[in-house]
């Protein structure tokens, strides 16, 4: 009896020490929902513009080879800038200031490298004879782009979308320091208040979301890949 109750007590202590964040999440569920919604609306906005912008840029530089090096140069520099700096620089621009526009713009710039690189790599992965055969069959440049190049590149492009989405979800947490009310805020305030439960709640929530997102998009990636391409990828 005493033994059993001491085990219970021990388990209780462990729970309190390491799983206090579960209580926190339950207690503050309203906040959790609000922050999660904000987090996702930012990610969705960023991905929307990134898809339009960076897929176009990727297609452009795969056609005009000379632009490719410039684009990758810019992308590489952007990628080396710490996320917090990029956010910071945007808020000091008078028209933007603290707020969503600054956060979104910084994240869109961040998305450039993985998106553009994968679109470019995908389009370049289409072997010459396939395009030669398409032209020889009488396909127009537009048909070659939409029926050959993009479909063959699509798995690689989508892999880029997946990596970017997960990355943006992660970096978006840092936007809490420029006023975003998202899941990063639990971590931010948790550190300020030295509340372990709050920090761990934030970290766990955002990690679980990132890992889940990666997993789900991975499944989607497999589904949308033509079986004819799937095998090739597995072999390479």
């Amino acid at each position: 009896m005493i033994f059993a109750s001491s085990i219970l007590q021990w388990a209780g202590n462990i729970y309190e020490k390491y799983f206090g964040f579960v209580d926190f999440i339950i207690r503050r569920s309203e906040r959790v929902v609000e922050y999660t919604a904000n987090h996702f609306s930012l990610v969705i906005t960023v991905m929307f513009f990134s898809l339009i912008l960076w897929i176009s840029v990727g297609l452009l530089i795969s056609r005009y080879e000379k632009l490719a090096n410039t684009a990758f140069g810019i992308g590489n520099i952007l990628f080396v800038i710490p996320s917090i700096s990029l956010f910071g620089i945007f808020i000091t621009i008078p028209m933007l200031g603290l707020g969503r526009t600054s956060a979104a713009l910084a994240l869109i710039l961040y998305a450039m490298m993985p998106m553009v690189r994968n679109v470019y790599r995908g389009i370049k992965s289409v072997e010459w004879p396939i395009i030669e055969a398409g032209r020889g069959m009488g396909m127009s440049p537009k048909q070659i782009l939409f029926q050959i190049q993009i479909p063959i590149a699509w798995p690689i492009i989508f892999a880029g979308i997946r990596v970017t989405t997960v990355m943006i979800t992660g970096i978006a947490t840092v936007a809490t320091f420029i006023g975003e009310r998202n899941l990063g805020r639990f971590i931010h305030h948790g550190i300020a208040r030295e509340s372990a439960d709050m920090i761990i709640a934030g970290a766990v929530l955002v990690s679980v979301i990132a890992i889940l997102l990666d997993y789900i998009l991975g499944k989607v990636e497999y589904k949308i890949t033509s079986p004819g391409l799937r095998k090739e990828q597995e072999q390479s």
């Binding site: 992660g170 990063g184 920090i199 955002v206 990690s207 990666d214």
Partner: peptide
């Protein structure tokens, strides 16, 4: 890979407590 998926802020924060 999973380690890389977890946001950097989360990893840094989680060791803090």
């Amino acid at each position: 890979n999973m380690g890389q998926t977890i946001p950097p802020l989360a990893i840094i924060a989680v060791f803090f407590p």
